[in-house]
Every structure is written in C-alpha cells, then in structure tokens.
Amino acid sequence: MGLIGTGPWATQTHAPVLAAHPDATLAGIWGRRAKAAAELASSYATTAYEDVDELFAVSDAVAFAVPPDVQAPLAERAAAAGCHLLLDKPVATSPEAARRLAAAVDQAGVSSVVFFTLRFAPPMAQWLERQAQDGPWFTARADWYSSFFAADGTGAFDSPWRADKGGLWDVGPHALAVLTAVLGEVTSVTAAPGPADTVHLILRHAGGASSTSTLTLRAPHAASGLTLEFRGESGTASPPGWGESGWGDSTDAFRSAVGALALAASGGERHPCDVRFGLRVTEILADAEDQVNARKETELPAQSPTRAS
C-alpha cells in the first residue's frame, strides 16, 4: 500500500499502522511537501516518491490522508492505475467530484473503503451492529459539539479546509455514518443554520425512522461534547462511556479499515462503507449546505434605505 499525505493523520495513524499491519506492506509515500514526505518515509525505511504516478505503479492499493478536494482527483488516477482505494472522509466536497471518483472505481474494477472512523473502531462497530439487530427504532439523535476553531478551543487538526467547510463537512460524515448504520439510508434532509458554523439536520431514513443532528467545530470549549442515542419500542440506547477514547481510537479503527480493504480486494464482498456510500454522504452534505446558504441569504437584514438630503 502506498500512502498519500504527510499531515497529522498520515504521521500519527496511517504510516505506523501500514508499516506494522499483517495484511499490508508500506510501499512508499507521496506528499505535496517533498521534504515532509522524505522525512516520513525515512522513519519507516520506505521510499518517498516525487511523482505520485510512480507510487501508484508500485502499489496494489493506496491510502489517502489529504484534504477531500485534493484526494478525489488523485484517487481517480490511482483507480485508473489499478490501485484499490482506502479513502478518507468525506471523499469530496462536491457531488460531481464524488461521482467522477465512484465512476472511476467502477470502471477500473477496484475495491474501495472509506475510513469513517466510528464504523471501524471495534467497540463502536460491534455496538452499532447490535443496535441494527435490536430495532426497529423510532428516532435517533447524533450531535457533535466540537471546539476546534472556537476562541477557547484547542485547534486540534487545524487545517484550512476544515476552517472553510466547518462542522457540517468535518463531523457531519461521522454522524451520518453511525445513524445510517442503524436506521438505514437517508432519503431526505432538511437543514438550518445555527450560530457560527453550526448546522442542524433533520433526516428521514428508508425504514421510516427519523433522526436529528447538530454539527459544529466552533462550540465554546465548556459546551463541547457528543451525543448519540436511539429511541424505540425497547427504550433508549446510547453507547456506554460514549465519548471516551475506547469508542473511537483512530489506530485500532484504521487497522480494521486496512483489513477490510484487503478482504474486499482479495475477492470478498464490498464493504458497506465503500466509495458509493462516500458519494451518498457527499450528496447529503452538499444538499444540506445548499439549504443552509439559501436560508442565510433570506435571513440577511434588509438594508436601510438611503435618506435623501
């Protein structure tokens, strides 16, 4: 497996897991910063490639740890080169780019997995599977109040695309991944803006259930936190100890994602979190973003008329 990227995800999660995984060998690294790629490759005794297509040529599969709109066109090229894809979420920030990527995967006949962390973290994946079996559920709620970019926040995983796209695109995929795992496909979305980058979603699911989600990266630090609950005939269910590191450890989750791609690439069934699911998530988020922008435009205060002198 080749690695695309040299940022925090690549250095802290992707590279160490790929270097030690029983189902993978780290074939090499490419990054937009050649010096950073060389330093990371040296740490794992592998090759830093200046030409990304050369990395594709020596790789059976490629893992991506770059911003979504950098990822999508590179992943198209990797698929065309015959590489299986381990993609980051969201796969793109426009439906058009996500559709081109999905079409490239289909045309090349390669396998794909999108790294929705909580769908691969073993404790959470097992808990979600149990809830899907224990239904039917009436409704659900998944709220992400993060403070990455709040005035008193930590700035964790600070990056221009997160600052620009906000909580809808960064933590929204997490909410959609856990809600759809239990309630099924989203058939419609209604979205409204809140303070700062906050977005409120109302979702309808194929099985008839509904869910809501509040998403932000700019909540005050003291107000940050996560909520996940399902309500149905058997009562209310939330993950025990929800929010603790054991539910979303990125290293364990990425290790599982690598194994899932290796299984799919060797002839196993496609994983539910493949590029087609990644495309659907992008379509939902883009629809919500359009609604939020339209509401913001209609809610702008009217300009005061200019007084005649």
Rank of each mutant, 00 (worst) to 15 (best):
A140E: 01
V182N: 12
L26A: 02
A257H: 01
A125V: 02
E289D: 15
T306G: 03
V52W: 01
L26D: 11
V171N: 00
S111P: 07
P122C: 06
V182A: 08
S224L: 00
S43M: 00
S42E: 15
P239A: 03
W161G: 05
Y49H: 13
P305V: 06
L279I: 13
A98E: 03
R100A: 15
F115L: 01
D252E: 15
T298L: 11
D290K: 09
A20T: 15
V189M: 09
E54I: 05
G232S: 12
F230H: 07
E229N: 07
V199T: 04
P123W: 01
L261P: 07
E299W: 09
S210Y: 12
L101K: 12
G135K: 11
W247C: 00
R99G: 11
M1T: 11
E229M: 07
E96T: 14
A156L: 13
D164L: 09
E297L: 13
R162E: 11
E50T: 15
V258C: 00
L215R: 01
A102K: 10
A92S: 15
T25K: 05
L101T: 14
D143K: 04
H205N: 09
R32G: 13
P22V: 15
A48P: 11
S266C: 08
V189Y: 06
K89N: 09
Q126L: 04
L201K: 05
K89T: 14
A78M: 14
A80K: 14
W161N: 05
P272C: 12
L217Q: 11
P160D: 12
L86W: 00
V171W: 02
G82H: 00
G184E: 05
D152N: 13
R231E: 10
F277V: 08
A177L: 04
A72D: 13
M1A: 08
A81L: 06
E185W: 03
F116E: 02
T251E: 09
A209D: 02
A222I: 09
S210P: 04
A209V: 04
D106G: 13
E283A: 08
T212V: 15
R119V: 04
H14F: 08
D88G: 14
A57Q: 06
G7D: 00
T13M: 03
R77V: 14
A196S: 08
I4M: 10
S238G: 12
V292L: 12
D158Y: 05
A257C: 06
T306L: 11
A38H: 12
A36F: 02
W144Q: 12
Y49R: 04
V105M: 14
R32Y: 01
H271I: 09
